[in-house]
Deep mutational scan, measured.
Amino acid sequence: PDFTLHWNGITIHFKGIDEEQFRHLRELLDRGVSLEELEELAKELIK
């Protein structure tokens, strides 16, 4: 499924991740993950 997340004025689209992965990403963003960390995470998910 696809998810869209609005965070700090940025709209991020996640394609092909499951709800569990999306929930994990939201928790990280709510905790204050940096954009660099988010990019690293995205690379991991894409593999």
Rank of each mutant, 00 (worst) to 15 (best):
P1V: 15
P1S: 14
P1M: 15
P1F: 15
D2R: 08
D2P: 11
D2C: 13
D2T: 15
D2Q: 12
D2L: 13
D2N: 12
D2M: 14
D2E: 12
F3V: 02
F3K: 02
F3M: 04
F3D: 01
F3A: 01
T4S: 09
T4F: 13
T4P: 01
T4Y: 12
T4C: 06
T4H: 14
T4A: 06
T4E: 05
T4M: 07
L5P: 00
L5M: 05
L5T: 01
L5Q: 00
L5R: 00
L5W: 03
L5E: 00
L5I: 11
H6F: 08
H6N: 10
H6D: 06
H6Q: 11
H6E: 10
H6L: 11
W7M: 07
W7S: 06
W7G: 01
W7V: 07
W7I: 09
W7Y: 09
N8I: 02
N8M: 08
N8E: 06
N8A: 10
N8L: 05
G9C: 04
G9D: 03
G9K: 02
G9V: 01
G9M: 02
G9N: 05
I10P: 00
I10N: 07
I10E: 05
I10A: 06
I10Y: 05
I10S: 06
I10L: 09
I10Q: 11
T11P: 04
T11A: 07
T11W: 05
T11Q: 08
T11R: 06
T11C: 10
T11G: 01
T11L: 06
I12G: 01
I12C: 05
I12P: 00
H13K: 09
H13P: 01
H13D: 06
H13W: 11
F14R: 00
F14C: 02
F14K: 00
K15A: 11
K15N: 11
K15H: 14
K15Q: 11
K15D: 11
K15S: 13
K15C: 04
K15F: 13
G16P: 03
G16S: 05
G16R: 04
G16F: 10
G16K: 03
G16H: 09
I17A: 02
I17T: 03
I17Y: 02
I17P: 02
I17L: 08
I17R: 01
I17C: 02
D18C: 09
D18N: 15
D18S: 15
D18L: 05
D18R: 08
D18I: 03
D18W: 04
D18P: 04
D18Q: 07
D18K: 11
E19G: 11
E19I: 13
E19R: 10
E19K: 10
E20R: 13
E20T: 14
E20V: 14
E20G: 12
E20Q: 15
E20W: 14
E20P: 03
Q21P: 02
Q21W: 07
Q21M: 13
Q21G: 08
Q21R: 05
Q21S: 12
F22W: 12
F22M: 05
F22I: 03
F22S: 01
F22Q: 02
F22C: 02
F22Y: 10
R23G: 04
R23N: 08
R23D: 04
R23A: 06
R23W: 14
R23V: 07
R23L: 09
R23C: 05
H24G: 05
H24W: 15
H24K: 12
H24E: 04
H24L: 15
L25H: 00
L25V: 04
L25G: 00
L25I: 07
L25W: 06
R26I: 07
R26A: 05
R26Y: 08
R26K: 10
R26H: 04
R26M: 07
R26W: 12
E27Q: 14
E27P: 01
E27G: 13
E27A: 15
E27W: 15
E27R: 15
L28D: 01
L28F: 08
L28H: 06
L28G: 02
L28C: 03
L28V: 07
L29W: 11
L29E: 00
L29H: 04
L29A: 11
L29N: 02
L29Q: 03
D30G: 12
D30H: 14
D30A: 15
D30K: 15
D30P: 02
D30T: 13
D30R: 15
D30S: 14
D30V: 13
R31E: 07
R31L: 10
R31I: 07
R31G: 08
R31M: 12
R31P: 02
R31T: 09
R31A: 09
R31C: 04
G32T: 05
G32H: 05
G32C: 06
G32D: 03
G32I: 10
V33N: 03
V33C: 07
V33H: 08
V33Y: 14
V33M: 13
V33T: 11
V33L: 11
V33W: 15
S34Q: 04
S34F: 07
S34D: 06
S34M: 05
S34H: 05
L35E: 02
L35F: 09
L35T: 04
L35G: 03
L35H: 04
L35K: 04
L35M: 10
L35C: 04
L35Q: 04
L35W: 08
E36Q: 11
E36C: 05
E36F: 13
E36H: 12
E36S: 11
E36K: 12
E36W: 13
E36D: 11
E36L: 11
E37S: 07
E37N: 05
E37A: 10
E37M: 10
L38A: 03
L38Y: 01
L38N: 00
L38M: 05
L38D: 00
E39N: 08
E39M: 15
E39F: 14
E39R: 12
E39P: 04
E39W: 15
E40L: 11
E40T: 09
E40H: 09
E40Q: 09
E40Y: 09
L41W: 15
L41H: 05
L41C: 03
L41Y: 13
L41R: 05
L41M: 08
A42R: 05
A42Y: 15
A42T: 05
A42I: 14
K43P: 05
K43T: 08
K43D: 08
K43G: 07
K43N: 09
K43M: 09
E44A: 10
E44T: 09
E44L: 12
E44D: 09
E44R: 09
E44H: 10
L45I: 11
L45C: 03
L45N: 03
L45F: 13
L45D: 02
L45R: 02
I46C: 08
I46K: 05
I46P: 06
I46S: 10
I46D: 10
I46E: 10
I46W: 04
K47F: 10
K47Y: 06
K47C: 13
K47H: 13
K47I: 15
